[in-house]
Simulated assay, not measured.
Amino acid sequence: MAAVKAWDDDLVYALSAQASVDHPDEITMIHTMLIDGVSDVICGDALPGDSPMVTCRFTIRYGTRNSYQVARLQKKDGGWVIDDALVVTRDRR
């Protein structure tokens, strides 16, 4: 869950920075959506090395949307962080 929240925060920061560059005279509000839960988590075996890496598939549930992700997670500073991800988001309505 911590890795997913950090990934969302990094995405919002990147989108905000790009909006500031694209529209310097405007104020743009970009925020993360509340995560209702993470489910269907399936991970492979961690690859050994200085900073172990693992590939996982999971579903993130936001308000009215589901985000299906396949992500590569890497162990850094005692926790897992999402290094790269493929994402498909669908409305549940």
Rank of each mutant, 00 (worst) to 15 (best):
V12G: 00
G79T: 15
G79V: 15
M33K: 08
A14H: 08
Y62E: 03
A2C: 09
L34V: 12
D25S: 13
V87G: 05
M53G: 00
L11M: 11
D36H: 07
S20I: 00
L47P: 00
V4C: 02
T89D: 08
D22G: 00
I35N: 02
C56A: 02
D40Y: 00
C43F: 06
D84P: 01
Y13L: 11
A14F: 08
V87S: 07
D40E: 09
N66P: 00
G79A: 15
L73I: 04
D9Q: 12
A46T: 09
K76A: 13
T64N: 13
L15F: 14
K75Q: 15
Y62K: 03
M29T: 13
V54R: 03
D84V: 05
K76P: 00
C56D: 04
V88K: 10
R57F: 06
D25G: 11
P48I: 07
R57A: 13
C56T: 05
G63V: 14
R92K: 10
V87A: 07
D9G: 05
D25W: 08
A71G: 08
D84G: 06
D8A: 11
A2V: 06
G44V: 03
R61D: 14
D40P: 01
H23G: 00
A19P: 11
A46E: 09
G44F: 01
R92P: 00
V41T: 07
T32E: 12
I82Q: 02
P52I: 00
D45Y: 04
D50K: 08
R90S: 11
R72I: 10
R61P: 01
V54G: 06
L34W: 07
D36Y: 05
E26M: 10
M33F: 09
D36E: 14
T89C: 04
L47I: 12
I60P: 04
Y13V: 05
T89I: 07
V87D: 08
